[in-house]
Amino acid sequence: MAVYRHIHIDYWQDGFVLDLTPEEKYFYIYLMTNSKTSQCGIYELPKRIIETETGYNRETVDKLLDRFVEYKKIKYCKETGEIFLINWLKHNRISSPKVRKCIYKELKKIKSIDMVNLFLDECYKYGYTLDESEIKINMGMDRVSIPIPQVKNNFEHGYGEKEKQKEKEKQKEKQKEKEKYKEKEVSHSVGRFKKLYEENIGLINGVVAEWLIEISQTIDYNLFKKAIEIATDRGKCNKGYVSGIIKQWLDNNIRTYDDLKAYEIGVKNRRDESGEYKKFEYANTNERENEKYTRKPTDEEIEELRKSYENMRRNREKL
């Protein structure tokens, strides 16, 4: 286990972190730097240790753990007390032979097979291929061998019908996860983006085509669809307005529809705690600059306009 954990200086400017409360920012750093963290991003962290090291009581610890699960930043196993930092592999490469050796050793100690499966899914997602022969997870009676990238739990014969049924259920869940991952890959197909644009906005020229290709590689289809829906509801379904919505999302590090939902949950939690509420304005820069010309006039402005009109009428009568 490494003695140091590296935190990028952009942590404080990250769109997700900017919207966290001070308490949440502190807790998120704690999850990434506490003494139990591991090279694979999965580690056992008893709540009593969290209480001792952070100074929070049990109620606050439970609340913060649940909140980061809702934000989709961690997975937490209540049975084993293990935590998995979902974005760990995104920022910590495992290409080094020494790092891989350390990870193989750590995987043998993980108690939750679900956590192991989640880790292997993340490896598959980022294109890491681990050595099958090195991954032997010691789970007591449920001793399994898990290859990469097809993750399987190969039980030996003679464990009974109950264990076999559990294995079948796990295989079904694993298949669903694979199908879900494939759907995410398909969701970035530029063809679907073009079709949605043509059906709701209009014909596609060269400039729009290039923009759609770039957008399809940046956000997922469901988030693009949401931007179209927002623009349609406001009667401003044009490329400029849709592009403005997407820019605001990207500025807040929102690239998928799940990211947007997690952001909205965070906003709601902060609103409930502080009474403040922050939401996207979904307006182009030009629209915000022209608000003074489109807003409703004040009573004083109406009275001034009325007096001006009366003076004009009297002058006409004199003529």
Rank of each mutant, 00 (worst) to 15 (best):
P46D: 07
K47V: 09
K47E: 07
K47P: 03
R48C: 04
R48M: 06
I50W: 02
E53Y: 09
E53A: 09
T54F: 08
G55E: 13
G55Y: 09
Y56H: 15
Y56I: 06
Y56L: 15
R58E: 12
R58H: 13
R58D: 09
E59N: 06
T60G: 05
T60I: 12
T60E: 14
D62R: 14
K63I: 05
L64A: 12
L64H: 14
L64C: 09
D66A: 13
D66P: 02
Y71F: 15
Y71G: 05
K72L: 07
K72D: 13
K72S: 12
K73N: 06
K73E: 11
K73G: 05
I74M: 08
C77V: 08
C77F: 07
C77Q: 14
E79K: 15
E79F: 12
E79D: 12
T80E: 01
T80V: 01
G81M: 03
G81E: 04
E82P: 11
I83V: 15
F84G: 10
L85C: 04
N87A: 14
N87W: 11
N87R: 14
L89T: 00
H91Y: 15
N92Q: 11
N92E: 13
R93E: 08
P97R: 12
K98D: 06
V99W: 12
V99L: 13
K101M: 09
K101T: 09
C102H: 03
C102W: 05
I103W: 11
I103P: 14
Y104R: 09
Y104T: 07
L107W: 04
L107V: 04
K109W: 03
I110M: 13
I110W: 08
K111V: 10
K111A: 13
S112H: 11
I113V: 07
D114K: 01
D114V: 00
M115N: 02
M115E: 05
M115Q: 07
V116W: 03
V116A: 07
V116R: 12
V116Y: 09
F119D: 01
E122V: 00
C123T: 01
Y124S: 00
Y124H: 02
K125S: 00
Y128M: 01
Y128T: 00
T129W: 09
T129C: 12
T129A: 10
L130E: 06
L130R: 05
L130V: 04
S133T: 08
S133Q: 12
S133M: 09
E134L: 12
E134K: 15
I135G: 04
K136S: 13
I137E: 08
N138L: 06
N138P: 01
N138G: 03
M139V: 11
G140C: 06
G140D: 15
G140R: 15
M141H: 09
M141I: 11
V144K: 03
V144F: 03
P147W: 04
P149I: 00
P149H: 00
P149W: 00
P149S: 02
Q150N: 11
V151H: 03
V151C: 04
V151F: 05
N154W: 07
F155N: 04
E156P: 05
H157S: 11
G160I: 10
G160C: 08
K164P: 00
K166Y: 06
E167H: 03
E169F: 14
K170L: 11
Q171I: 12
K172I: 15
K172F: 14
